[in-house]
Design a protein around this nucleic acid. Structure first.
Lengths: 399, 399
DNA sequence: CGGCTTAATTAATGTCGTCATTAAAATGGT
DNA sequence: ACCATTTTAATGACGACATTAATTAAGCCG
């Protein structure tokens, strides 16, 4: 179904891309490793690698162990060939991080968001200020920045300028990319936060090695990223993966999206706290913000029957939601991430059991359900991979 | 993430595949159409097309209209370069159809299945007998058969020999491909029936032109096929798309899969009839089989409040189920197929409304919900496309 | 220090698409 | 009836690339 023409030059591009990707994702590697890994001939690998070294994208880094014979040189991506910036526009804060090409953090800065002071222009301002800040702090020139990736907790519609719908921020069709672009000419990449988290876990965390994986992001709201055949699936207008608003309890609790019985209305942090409050006959849950309230609930479960019941039910609902993902996507792995999922980590065994009850046996047996390995900062890390993904796809030929 | 090497010869293969696919799917076309459609140069197109003609895969079919200048020749796939066989192993029958490469039916035969006489060996026997029969009837030699595609109403796990799990047939890990292969050495392709139906609608029906589409198959049971980026999505073990057993009503009606609240337990034909019976306080629904019982329900809705209510609820459940697909996959199109969906066609407006209530606005606005165009035989037709899909993918180089 | 092994480079060969040019085939004006 | 015009198809020179085979480089081992 691929109706894209191939030409002789595209051969080189593909091979460059394949080799560079491998060096980046699995490196350091020797030329021989690349020969074995890609099936290309030795001269072809040397030829392409030579170009990459000449262009400063790749560097030799010492010789490999050898037991007789000429030792092969290790190849790695040149860490400072460029830097990338990852931004996490979350429900409560904007976080900007600067990475080199080995994804080492070179600097970061965070701006809290008022609970309702979430004007798009304010957020764009934070992003721009953050970029200036991390560059200034680390003394790196703008020209060295490959690009800026921005993960937003909302639906991001890709296009010439990405448009953002974010219920929790009260945003409707906000041209965030344009707002940021007006303040900088660095290449921008916007994406949904769940998708960037998925990308991060896919490259560096619990998703490594999987071709088909689902990343469930549980925070105040609920989202998911689906990786099919190694690629994040976006759908027709890049809103695929809106797991939080799938119906789980037909006719059930009202959801902030306007429908009823959405998964988010049961397992989102806000909903869990709400359900706990109801179970306490309306007595408020102690804690300043959702994070501490959820913590209070988890702590209370040690002693309180009520709290435990709420958590058990949460695991059941979450398990059923995960089962739906398993039935529909048949992934090799389901990875739970987001701060609420991390806080509820103790429920993992119960979630597994609940999912097993609701999923079909065969696909359930072929998947694992685990927690994310990258913690809460995965969104910014994943956002930073967006410009890199482009670099790898084009074989390192910028723009 | 594509780590496949490219070589000069693979360029030719890709272009052969692209051109052949276009001629097959959109033909007849002229060389110039191909030039415009693929971006290849004229000589390249002529060169490849020349090969295809020499090998008998493609033939010239008359000149196109011309208003001055040398008229271009129409190119089409040679209809009798090969024939293909499509098999529909349904819940109640095995249907075998013979097609030429333009998908014209050259012959067909059907074997009813006893309601519980569904021994795998029996089914394999029917398939083999059907192949012999359609070939004998049409006087076509086995050597002309490109391959046999088999669509099965169950989960098909791909592998060296495909394995089938089919609850409605009482099958568990049945090596159907092997059973059939023992009786013939024609190339076999097994797949889930919903997926072959999707493939058929994608190429020849309501899915034409879409990159992202979901095909929902409602019969006695419920299944779905998901097309992402133009390709049927299979997942890790090709059981993706098991929509029927996603939880829609947490804790609801028991399903034959053992879980509770599955979509299938509400909108599968069997379930709808069951719900109607319950609404009639247990009085049996008139009709010999499910098909006539469902027909009776639809007919009764003209007069009976009860029947109408059952149908309305069915539309609501189905709409919610469709909404889940829209939220998760963000398709351009949702196509409803299968005999029960066809019988319930009158509910389409209600289903659209119900889906709109439960789906997020943005993805809902970007999709259409429609009925399949190919009717009930789409499963066999789609199965027959499996060997052809392989032919197109390899650029017409057999095996 | 020579024999052996493995890595990397160079040389020769062949595949393939592009560009530019030429041949072919139809229409329409004069 | 004939030639200019237009559009399609076929040819040939050229360049980009990967492949195989042969060479050179660089280490270990006894």
């Amino acid at each position: 179904m691929e109706l894209v023409r191939a030409t002789n030059r595209s051969v080189r591009l593909r091979n460059r891309s394949a080799l560079l990707s491998r060096i980046f994702l699995d490196g350091p590697l020797t030329r021989q490793d690349l020969v074995r890994g890609t099936g290309l001939s030795q001269p072809a690998v040397s030829n392409v690698v030579g170009d990459l070294i000449d262009e400063g994208l790749v560097m030799e880094a010492g010789a490999a162990e050898s037991d007789g014979g000429r030792p092969s040189m290790m190849l790695r991506v040149a860490p400072r060939h460029a830097v990338v910036i990852g931004v996490d526009v979350g429900e409560t804060r904007v976080r900007v991080e600067l990475f080199d090409l080995t994804m080492t953090v070179l600097g970061s800065v965070e701006y809290p968001l008022e609970h309702n002071g979430t004007e798009p222009a304010t957020v764009a301002g934070h992003v721009l200020a953050g970029i200036d800040r991390v560059l200034a702090d680390s003394g790196i020139a703008r020209s060295e920045v490959l690009g800026v990736g921005i993960g937003v907790s909302g639906v991001v519609e890709q296009g010439a300028h990405a448009i953002v719908d974010a219920q929790t921020l009260g945003w409707h069709r906000v041209p965030l990319q344009q707002l940021v672009a007006e303040g900088t000419d660095l290449p921008l990449h916007l994406d949904n936060g769940a998708k960037t988290l998925g990308q991060a876990e896919m490259w560096f965390g619990a998703g490594r090695g999987a071709r088909h994986a689902v990343f469930a992001l549980v925070g105040s709201g609920v989202g998911a990223a689906v990786v099919t055949n190694g690629v994040t699936y976006r759908g027709a207008s890049s809103s695929a993966g809106e797991w939080g608003h799938t119906t789980l309890v037909y006719g059930g609790r009202p959801c902030r999206c306007g429908a009823r019985g959405c998964l988010e209305a049961y397992v989102g942090a806000e909903a869990v706290i709400d359900r706990y409050r109801e179970a306490r006959r309306g007595r408020p849950v102690p804690g300043e913000d959702e994070e501490s309230q959820l913590g209070a609930l988890v702590a209370a479960a040690e002693k309180s029957e009520t709290a435990r019941r709420v958590l058990d039910e949460t695991a059941d609902y979450l398990g059923a939601g995960v089962a739906n993902l398993i039935n529909l996507f048949n992934p090799e792995r389901v990875v739970l991430g987001g701060w609420a999922a991390m806080a509820l980590g103790g429920l993992l065994p119960a979630i597994r059991v609940a999912a097993g009850r609701q999923a079909l046996r065969a696909p359930y047996a072929q998947t694992t359900i685990e927690l994310g390995r990258l913690g809460v900062d995965a969104v910014a890390l994943g956002a930073a991979t967006l410009p890199i993904a482009r670099l790898l796809a084009t074989g390192g030929i910028r723009r």
